[in-house]
Each structure stands twice: as C-alpha cells, then as structure tokens.
C-alpha cells in the first residue's frame, strides 16, 4: 500500500521507508506500523485523531509519533489506515524553540473489530536498535525495528 519495505529480521519486524519529504516518511512509517497489526484494506476511516508533537531531534519525533499511535491502539482500541502529516521546522521565535520540529497529524481509522478486521501481530513498541532517519542527497530515509 504505502511506500515502505519490510526487511528480514529473525525475531521482530524491521522496515525501511524512503521519501522525498519528511511528510512522506512519517506517513509511510505509520502505515507500515499498522500493516504489521491489521489488514489495512479492512480498516474504515470513521474516526479522525489529531496528534501534535514537537521535538528538536527529527528522529525522536518519528519515534514519538509511532509510539503515540501504538498507545492509541491499546488505550483507545484504534487502528488507522490513513495518515496526513505536516512537519514544520521552527526557524524563528524564541531561542528555546528555534530548530524545533513541529508535527501535526491526522490519523484516520476506527475502533478495533476482531470480527471484521483481519488482525495480525500486536506491536509492543518502536525501538532504537538500528534506528535512523536521515537525508541522503535529496531524499529522506528511515529504518525502524518494531518490537512485537
């Protein structure tokens, strides 16, 4: 569905995303995280959840975004199949906020329904093992290992 690729890993799930923008990276990483857990095609877009996060470290911002989505799965029983993400870098303003990345995302999905959704494997958390998000020439690339 999205622009991501699962890599071989013996015990857990590792994926890589490539994109021209940070927006693409974040949206595709979120899709990959849910593809592990559910058949995305079966998740209707009934609920919209707004997520706002900020961090000076863009990698940590991605980590926290995925963490927030996993949290919503357990605490609110939500699975998502569509993400719209916007990321802005704060270049002006107060010194403490300068260089901060601000994320605003809309995650669309619905409450988990074991009868209709084809549920797969539960994701426990994103990990820092081999984790990276970096710009290579004009493209962004990220790698995430999910603990399952």
């Amino acid at each position: 569905m999205g622009n991501y690729r699962f890599l071989e890993h013996t015990a857990d799930v590792m994926f890589e995303v490539n994109g021209k923008s940070l927006k693409e990276i974040f949206e595709n990483a979120a899709l990959a995280t849910f593809e592990v857990q559910v058949d995305l095609k079966k998740v209707k877009r009934k609920v919209k959840k707004k997520i706002k996060l900020k961090n000076k470290d863009i990698g940590l911002l991605l980590f926290e975004f995925l963490e927030e989505l996993i949290y919503l799965k357990d605490a609110k029983y939500l699975v998502f199949s569509k993400f719209k993400v916007s990321i802005k870098e704060n270049l002006l303003g107060k010194r403490s906020q300068k260089g901060e990345f601000k994320l605003e995302a809309n995650a669309e999905g619905e409450k988990i329904d074991p009868k209709r959704h084809e549920l797969k494997t539960d994701v426990k958390a994103p990990t820092f093992h081999n984790f990276f998000l970096k710009k290579i020439k004009n493209n962004w690339k990220a790698r995430v290992l999910l603990d399952i």
Partner: peptide
Amino acid sequence: RGFGHQIATDYLK
C-alpha cells in the same frame, strides 16, 4: 502487556 511496553518505552527515551 501494553502496561510494561509503555513503561519500558518511557524510560528508554
């Protein structure tokens, strides 16, 4: 379950 996963994530960060 998710309780332990979140505690581990919180402190890992």
